[in-house]
Design a protein around this nucleic acid. Structure first.
Lengths: 223, 223
DNA sequence: CGCTGAATTGACGGACATCAAGATGTGTGG
DNA sequence: CCACACATCTTGATGTCCGTCAATTCAGCG
């Protein structure tokens, strides 16, 4: 009934991730190894045991789940600094893939949790992380009951807010990714973009580079 | 554009909640006071500081958020045994109301968290609770991208699974509640129910009492 | 260049919202 | 216990947003 992740070549099994030179750590004191993932490379898969926590160093990562009819629901996009993989119990309920070439810090979950038992501050950070993740997902289901126009406007503002960019942002993900995130089709996303361009809300340098022209109007749509 | 929580009288400010005789505790060792809430009484409101954790003893509770245009999104229903209020950071992002007359155990959040710092087991329970809540919300956004038929089927099965009933269950919530939970209109929910009745999947003793006649078929719809 | 995947645009149909009326159920006061 | 008022639920007729199918344009890369 909607948004199938078509195009088999989009999901070609990618080359093995390889270790890369170390990079400085983020806000949370994760002790882990930096790894490099090619575009569309799998970080972890649905139903795999959840042994690690992850932090994006560069690039972007998407998590998603498949419905048995082939539809794909993108649960979240993670950008540099973001930590992911916390939502899992013993096994992952979603898969994670690199949206673009990405470096990801990988830390053993058991090690982090063990250390959290001794360090109150770390424990607190993990809890806050969990709360934020929960609120993000709630916000997401909030988005899914809105109109296409509202969803896309909300998406652009969300990305703008997280990309710490100025009047223009570079989207790392394809229209198909956006569509599956918003519960729309690629065509509807595309049409909404051009509609926004025609109304002077944004303009497109390339299909992935967005210039904001009337943020107030977008905010109004983001009811 | 959809599912407005109409009918002002539905939200008439209810009588003050009053304390009630104590009741035995649930799985999580919450030390709190049982309170009684009338139908539609507010347990907590959006933007209020989150000072407590809650566990349903009897009845049912819904959490929801309002869009500024009057649409309402029901985030979750909580049944006896369920703990709610964990999703909050410092303030609540959603409101909670009794769906029906309800008894709720109310425990000071700070006390629980303080005790969790000493008792590993409690800390672990809270973490698991958080994980389950996160997965529930993810599951919910999963539901919102499906067809009306699939959503309603999924809802009935979810309720059946949680109500620990046999071949028939009593829904504590109105069609409006269901509609706002599923991101549909009251009419679509109603029509889907009658469609299920006509196809012999369920039957209705009263509008709120559902008899399951063909669970396999419902499961098939719950793709 | 030409090839391939990504994005855009158009025509059309269907699922669900909207608007409106009727049916059923429930609480209240005489 | 009945009758009235009001809320909830159901059913019908119509409209519209967005999905589907299909063709075209655009961008990147060998």
């Amino acid at each position: 009934m909607l948004s199938v992740a078509t195009n088999s070549s989009m999901f070609v099994r990618p080359p093995m991730p390889t270790r890369t030179a170390g990079l400085p750590d983020g806000p949370l004191a994760l002790m882990g190894a930096p790894m490099r993932f090619a575009r569309n490379a799998e970080v972890y898969g649905e139903d795999e045991p959840a042994e690690y926590l992850y932090q994006v160093i560069s690039g972007a990562v998407r998590t998603y789940r498949m419905l048995d009819d082939g539809r794909r629901q993108v649960v979240a996009f993670y950008l540099p600094g973001d930590i992911f993989g916390v939502e899992a119990g013993d096994v992952h309920l979603s898969s994670a893939e690199a949206v673009s070439e990405a470096q990801v810090l990988v830390a053993k979950r058991s090690a982090v949790l063990a250390r959290a038992e001794r360090e109150k501050q770390l424990s607190r950070q993990l809890w806050d992380l969990m709360v934020r993740e929960l609120q993000r997902v709630q916000q997401h289901s909030f988005v899914l009951i809105k109109s296409a126009e509202e969803r896309v406007a909300g998406f652009l503002l969300e990305m703008a807010g997280r990309s710490s960019g100025g009047a223009s942002i570079e989207l790392p993900m394809s229209r198909q990714d956006i569509a599956d995130y918003l519960g729309l089709t690629i065509e509807t996303v595309s049409r909404t973009f051009t509609q926004f361009v025609q109304s002077g809300l944004i303009s497109l340098e390339t299909s992935r580079r967005i210039q904001f022209r009337d943020r107030a109007a977008l905010n109004r749509l983001n009811a």
